[in-house]
């Protein structure tokens, strides 16, 4: 009984592990796909993060205005370079989202369609395009005043 149970366990384990090797045809599709992150995108993100950060640091008083201006000039240049590089690397995605598989794209399209049909009365920020929440007088994402009429 025990021997039988042990044998079953052993065989099952060996089968599960060896199956991909024994039947490679089923499992051979290109599974080692490209890395989903890329140095160019990372560089763009770093530059954008740097810009955001100095803005916040100035607001919290960690950076003098003078330093801020100089650093902003510098990182703006860097960020633009990084953006151009990202465009060059991914010419098909001008706003440089993450490289997405076709399935993801379709899904995203469906999702966005569903989103828009579901929330017909929803307002969007004219500055950055994100959906408005709460009182809707300011955009929660970018902070822009939305010039909506005050609520009745």
């Amino acid at each position: 009984m025990l021997v039988l149970a042990g044998l079953i366990i052993a065989l099952a384990a060996v089968f599960v592990v060896l199956e991909p090797v024994l039947r490679p045809a089923v499992w051979a599709p290109d599974r080692l796909a490209a890395f989903d992150d890329d140095a160019t995108l990372a560089r763009r993100d770093t530059a954008l993060a740097a810009l955001k950060e100095i803005e916040f640091d100035r607001a919290t008083g960690k950076l003098s205005d003078e330093d801020y201006e100089r650093l902003r000039a510098k990182y703006t240049t860097e960020a633009l370079e990084a953006l151009r590089a990202a465009d060059a690397a991914f010419p098909d995605r001008l706003t440089a989202g993450p490289p997405a598989s076709a399935a993801d794209t379709v899904e995203a399209l469906i999702a966005s369609a569903r989103e828009s049909s579901k929330s017909n009365g929803r307002k969007y920020c004219i500055e950055c395009g994100s959906g408005l929440e709460g009182s809707g007088r300011f955009c929660v994402e970018c902070g822009a005043a939305t010039k909506l009429a005050p609520r009745p």
Partner: peptide, 26 residues
């Protein structure tokens, strides 16, 4: 230090950077 912002850079590109920045939370 030399290039002040906006000079030598297409305004369109700067606009785009602004958009990117707004989308970017960090």
């Amino acid at each position: 230090e030399t290039p002040p912002p906006g000079v030598g850079v297409a305004g369109q590109e700067l606009e785009r950077l602004k958009r990117e920045l707004e989308r970017f939370e960090a």
